[in-house]
């Protein structure tokens, strides 16, 4: 074992399919470099499992640079592990100590059924998006700069909301498995811009209706989602959506 490397005990949720019961299975891993990412540590473990002719652990991952939002893992009871403002692929093994036991579970929500092991089906988010998370008016060719004046603060707030990568950490963290932060971000990014105002009332009503239909819980304002969001989406977005929803139901 080279200097600083770690031996760890992993307890990982294994579940063959959504219709079968799952369980935590213990795997010892040896000689893990502190410079590895959490997912690289999983790669090492999976190579060992394959070599032993065992089924590798299925987990979602894509870009491995913190922008795709795929790497859904609840690590020791926290979405994306012990650090804030990062996804699992940005978590490094130096955040753990030699001899640690690490429990890894999938996102848990009625609306995120387990496909296999740590992979969950997040298409409920896609269906919410499809109900209005876009602009359908023809905005024509790009205008000259400054033809459509937008206050800097609004542009910034809209951009910050648009930074949501739809990873679902908000749902995984929320005690009620509520999707409010995700939906609020998607509503807000348009609500703040003139292009988005045209369809603002139908957008928020349809997206909220779909959110409720998918079986997400309701928001109880604990603000846990905001803390665990890798992109720092603010609770102000949830308030904005509450506002938009109230207005939409009054005028429309």
């Amino acid at each position: 074992m080279s200097h600083g490397n770690m031996n760890l005990t992993l307890k990982i949720w294994r579940q063959n399919s959504g219709s079968e019961p799952g369980q935590l299975v213990t795997y010892p891993v040896k000689d893990i470099s502190p410079d590895m990412s959490f997912l690289e540590m999983f790669d090492v473990l999976n190579e060992q499992l394959v070599a032993k002719n065992e089924s590798p652990i299925v987990f979602d991952h894509d870009c491995r640079e913190g922008i795709c939002g795929m790497c859904s893992m609840v690590i020791n009871g926290r979405a994306h592990g012990p650090k804030t403002g990062i996804t699992t692929c940005q978590l490094h093994m130096r955040s753990f100590k030699d001899g640690d036991t690490i429990v890894v579970e999938p996102w848990r929500a009625q609306a995120f059924p387990v496909i296999k092991d740590l992979t969950v089906d997040r298409s409920s988010f896609e269906r919410i998006q499809a109900k209005g998370g876009f602009i359908s008016v023809n905005t024509g060719t790009a205008q000259d700069a400054n033809c459509l004046p937008i206050p800097k603060d609004d542009a910034d707030a809209s951009f910050n909301a648009a930074a949501c990568i739809g990873c679902g950490a908000c749902v995984a963290t929320c005690k009620n498995a509520s999707a409010m932060l995700f939906v609020a971000a998607k509503v807000s990014q348009f609500a703040l811009l003139p292009q988005g105002k045209v369809e603002a009332t139908t957008r928020v009503k349809n997206m909220v209706a779909q959110m409720d239909a998918e079986g997400f819980g309701s928001c109880t304002n604990t603000s846990a989602c905001e803390v665990e969001c890798p992109k720092g989406i603010s609770l102000e977005n949830i308030a904005r959506m509450n506002r938009e929803y109230l207005v939409a139901n009054c005028v429309d």
Partner: peptide
């Protein structure tokens, strides 16, 4: 609301560290 919420997560977490992200009383209304 509570009855609706209780259905939102049928399978609970084996380990959940909620104390780092929210106050206990906000979760215990």
């Amino acid at each position: 609301i509570s009855m609706h919420n209780s259905k939102a997560r049928p399978q609970k977490y084996a380990v959940q560290n909620q104390a780092v992200s929210s106050k206990w009383y906000s979760r215990s209304m």
